[in-house]
Design a protein around this nucleic acid. Structure first.
Lengths: 257, 257
DNA sequence: CCGCTCAGCATTGGATCCAATCTGGTCCGC
DNA sequence: GCGGACCAGATTGGATCCAATGCTGAGCGG
């Protein structure tokens, strides 16, 4: 086996395998699992932007020393989810409107490309699955569920082999904005929900007709519309204690800057 | 000050400051400098793809313990330059044609976007600088210099404030393929050199005329042409045959033609 | 009453030591 | 002679301990 040949390098990102036996082994799967868990907490909002992350606290929770936590934090920093300040501490990264806009602009360019590369691999069975997922989006009841189902739909459409880095980059862009997307799709803007469903249908049709250009254009437009919605709702970035907008739970720690 | 607000998270990437005093301080600038140095060696080919990286060796060279090296390697892994295998070792990542193609496709989409966002900030003085850099590309004598000057030109064109993540992503894509680009621009394909110069001139004109769409299209085409060249020269990926035996200068390939 | 300084504390960064894993070579059995 | 298993060396992964840094708050002086 040639170790250097297969590596994408980003394997660390590859979701939570969850397969690890409970044994306190030296395997680095442990570190990977911790990274995946922390990442999950950040993107789904359990660790909202601005939250201070104390190494010791996390270490104790997972029953390991601070060392693997340090490496994990370094890793999360490199993906932009965490901000490290030398000799001071780590915080969950916070986005402002400009950064979020930038990320959406990147997605507008990259996700259509990913879709293009994935489309030749789609089969008739895929289309059935896509329809099912689109219906799941339509059937979602809470905003949290809508966001998740929407992501499932996008992920399925762009699933396919042999585009590792691109897919990981797109995934990464989704992760960075996931928290704010959830804030955005509050009931007050549910009109957007109908647009999303319509755009999904259009997208689905283009994909089924194997019209690559139309599919790309539709997807780009779809993302662009969401970006415009973000730009019209800058209040979601005013972390502090914006009345009523931020989550239902006591996410917002008092020590937030 | 709010620590979490300013962070792009990717600050680690921000080039080699080189400013570090020699003192054996606890400052993490040391780690950052090591990361930058290693990264530099990888992208410029001093550490070619497939090279085994031993933690202890690097640690001794920089006069630190293995610990910061470990974190550095994790970091480089997350950016795809290094491949880690659990409990086994680290190697400089190797690209195959498909991956390289994928990276170029991404650059075709992202770099024009970066250019678009940078163009409003360009001034008359910028244009003078661009011309100077374009001439430097034309005046380059070795292929190594050509690659470097070409990168300088592209970087200057896309320089500007407030697009941190996008710029870092584009930079990252350049880094990943830099080694192979150098392999590519051998004398044998010097015809491409003339194309590059011509395309640079076209690009420059579009930028000076502040024609954003034309500039984007020209840049995309420029990158696309290089990608096609890569696709026509798959042999640049056939370095070394066995994983362990990739010599330090295996990339010097005395391809005469 | 307010601003500055300095000491104490919490937290992070690094070095050394120990345990687990993998590789490579060699030996034995077939 | 050849293939598989075993043993030793090398190398990485993790835990604990120590040093340095940055924040916090009390005390002092203006």
């Amino acid at each position: 086996m040639s170790p250097a040949a297969h590596g994408s390098g980003l394997s660390f990102w590859a979701g939570s395998d969850e397969g690890g036996d409970g044994a306190v082994t030296h395997d680095q799967a442990r570190s990977a699992a911790i990274a995946a868990e922390l990442r999950g907490r950040i993107i789904d909002g359990r660790l909202p932007p601005g939250t201070r992350i104390r190494q010791e606290e996390i270490a104790e929770e997972f029953g390991v020393s601070r060392l693997p936590i340090r490496e994990t934090l370094r890793f999360l920093e490199s993906s932009g989810l965490v901000t490290l300040v030398a000799s001071t501490g780590a915080w969950v990264s916070r986005l402002d409107l400009e950064e979020c806009r930038e990320i959406y602009l990147m997605r507008e360019r990259l996700e259509p490309l990913l879709l293009r590369l994935a489309m030749p691999g789609h089969t008739t069975e895929s289309f059935v699955e896509f329809s099912r997922l689109a219906e799941a989006v339509a059937a979602s009841t809470s905003r949290g569920e809508l966001v998740e189902r929407d992501r499932d739909f996008h992920r399925a459409l762009t699933a396919g082999p042999a585009t590792k880095r691109l897919r990981e980059t797109v995934d990464h862009l989704w992760n960075l904005t996931h928290f704010y997307r959830r804030q955005l799709l509050s009931p007050s803007v549910s009109r957007r929900r109908e647009d999303i469903l319509t755009e999904h249908r259009m997208l689905l049709r283009a994909v089924e007709e194997r019209d690559v250009d139309a599919a790309e254009a539709t997807l780009a437009l779809h993302i662009r519309h969401t970006r415009r919605l973000v730009e019209r709702n800058p209040q979601i970035f005013e972390s502090g204690e914006a009345p009523g907008t931020v989550g239902p739970d006591a996410w917002v720690r008092p020590d937030a800057p």
